[in-house]
Write a protein that binds this DNA or RNA. Structure first.
Length: 205
DNA sequence: AGAGCGATTGCCT
DNA sequence: GGCAATCGCTCTG
């Protein structure tokens, strides 16, 4: 499997398109403690953009959501519930807010650093099976806010392979449940499996 | 200046 | 399935 950086052209696509195209790609962060790239295959994403009432950008720019309004292809990391960091990749042109929430990764070796940051009994496939879990496993924090994809800390690679994609309502939001902007591919590491029954298959690649 | 709450998780019943 | 944990950000006054 040869991996190459995701094409820059992704930057110009609509947020929902980027959310789908990121599926199957490999996301890695450089772990300075071990001096190695760690991460996994993206298996679940959600799209947030514009005036969508469930998006942080719905009520205009604020200090927290500013990265959503800035350049595409960068990290937007925010803190929630007093204990979890959420990793997003920004989308859309400058001034037009958008981001893709990375909800789950299927871990790829090396796993030791990820294991050491998650509870002892966590199974390998569960190391990054949720948005708060993956940032914990990879030690992604607000310090990584605005990190550039393709930079020293964060990179996304693709093998160009296509797999069937499923869509469902987004998780944990009050409004906007009518749009199917949560996307996932077949993997044991997808979160909220219980709610996947209503998911629709939207591609047949 | 302060209340209310959230794009979640893990533990308890 | 229910709920506590825990705190920064946003909105209201």
């Amino acid at each position: 499997m040869s991996l190459r950086p995701v094409p820059k052209s992704l930057d110009q696509k609509r947020t929902e398109i980027v959310a789908r195209e990121l599926l199957g790609c490999v996301l890695q962060v450089f772990d300075s403690e071990s001096s190695e790239w760690i991460g996994g295959r993206i298996v679940e994403t959600e799209a947030y953009s514009g005036e969508d009432p469930s998006s942080h950008s719905a009520r205009g720019q604020t200090p927290r959501n500013a990265p959503m309004f800035e350049a595409p292809g960068h990290a937007y990391v925010y803190f929630i519930y007093g204990m979890y960091e959420m990793l997003n990749i920004t989308t859309e042109r400058v001034g037009q807010p958008g981001a893709v929430l990375i909800r789950a990764l299927e871990p790829i070796e090396p796993l030791s650093m990820m294991r050491s940051r998650r509870p002892d009994r966590t199974r390998d496939w569960d190391l990054c099976s949720g948005p708060g879990k993956l940032t914990r496993a990879l030690s992604v924090t607000r310090a990584d806010n605005r990190a550039r994809v393709g930079g020293e800390r964060l990179r996304i690679l693709t093998d160009g392979r296509k797999t069937p994609i499923f869509a469902s309502p987004r998780v944990g939001i009050r409004e906007g449940r009518d749009t199917l902007w949560r996307f996932f591919i077949e993997s044991r590491s997808v979160s909220r499996v219980r709610e996947n029954e209503s998911a629709q298959r939207i591609s047949k690649d």
